[in-house]
Design a protein around this nucleic acid. Structure first.
Lengths: 224, 224
DNA sequence: CCTACCGATCGGTAGG
DNA sequence: CCTACCGATCGGTAGG
């Protein structure tokens, strides 16, 4: 159901009847843009970027076929916006882990467990489609867009490095830090393909299993 | 350069001049079909299924835009054929590992190393685009096609299970066999995203690293 | 396998 | 944001 058309604003001294006309900022432009972003993320995650049409996205957001281009210059720009949102979400979650007051005093194995847990939570959340689009649609980006995104991903991975280095120094990591990072994140990222979100709350157990598999010693030591 | 047109076949008693007319079997139909399959796999791997047009594939094989449909009923059927080829290749490689005369006497850690190595070799081979399409285009399949393929994938994974069970029994696996299988294969499958084939022959080192990361004990013991 | 073609769809735009 | 539209492209087909 379309909203009733805004009544024209009469002389400013006169108290306007009906609903006042709104500027783009006062109107729900931001909400409409955000709705597009969310529906785009959902469709990109489910169907892939190339198999999703801008008409699909518009319809999901309750708009006409041309309307997404009022908010985004192109389909490509929409994808980039989805992906940037995705890494920002993931970056903030990991940064939150690192900034916890106890983090510096936590054993490296438990630090890693927290990174793994945060990563899985943000990646497998059925209500957050942004992050998995980041992982699975990079080839749909242009070169410059990929480069732009790559910098943010590097930042993201950098947050894991201190704990990985510490574990390597302790002899708990079976291989070099760079390879461990690639293999561990790969194992986690692939969970998108098989994880069943309907079996709720098993992310905890999954994080435990991953930690136990990747580390030489049982992951429990160092727990309070 | 197109082949010269076949000359019509005169009376069978007469020794035919020029090149004899060929039936579909004798003609290079099989080669043309195979060429389509290979180019389709390459394009699906590079660009994704949805972003690849049947015209792209036809052009890559040196055909006209309608010709792929002489060999394949639809674009979907072409994808399924590519993926079935992919798992068959992978299945044969793993079966070859299992059938080696020494396999049964090999320590489980080294069995797993061979599975990992074969998996990586077949997945990262720049001359074999079929296997990575299997991994990354399953959502482009119809439900029945996915089910069909899923059976073959289950067969593939079954070949890994005995060595994983043995390792678990030996306490060398940090988690349950089902989760270990998912996480290990995930880590390997993700290597498609970052492995640089131009740095040749590092698949060996990668397999070593993976084994060392996933197993509790250093992977060298049990070597001849 | 090619030629010639079709109906449908797609990303995007002009103008309000 | 909608209306109305465009040019290009796409999967697929008929007929040979």
């Amino acid at each position: 159901m379309p909203p009733p058309p805004a009544t024209p604003d009469p002389a400013p001294t006169k108290r306007p009847r009906g609903r006042p006309r709104k500027t783009a900022q006062e109107r729900d432009d931001g909400n409409r843009r955000s709705a597009l972003l969310h529906h785009a993320a959902q469709l990109f995650r489910r169907q892939g970027f190339a198999a999703t049409t801008t008409r699909d996205i518009a319809a999901a957001a309750g708009m006409q076929s041309g309307s997404p281009f009022y908010f985004f210059k192109s389909k490509d720009a929409l994808l980039l916006a989805v992906m940037e949102t995705g890494i920002q979400i993931a970056l903030q979650r990991q940064a939150h882990v690192c900034q916890h007051p106890e983090y510096a005093r936590t054993p490296a194995a438990q630090q890693l467990r927290q990174h793994i847990h945060a990563h899985l939570e943000v990646l497998l959340d059925p209500n957050n489609d942004f992050v998995s689009v980041v992982l699975y649609e990079q080839r749909s980006l242009s070169h410059s867009q990929r480069k732009q995104l790559g910098q943010l991903i590097t930042q993201y991975e950098a947050l894991w490095l201190p704990s990985l280095h510490a574990l390597h120094a302790q002899g708990q990591l079976g291989t070099s830090v760079p390879l461990a990072r690639l293999l561990i994140l790969g194992a986690l990222n692939w969970s998108v393909q098989w994880y069943d979100a309907t079996q709720a709350s098993s992310i905890d157990r999954l994080a435990d299993a991953a930690l136990a598999l990747f580390l030489r010693s049982p992951g429990a030591e160092g727990l309070p």
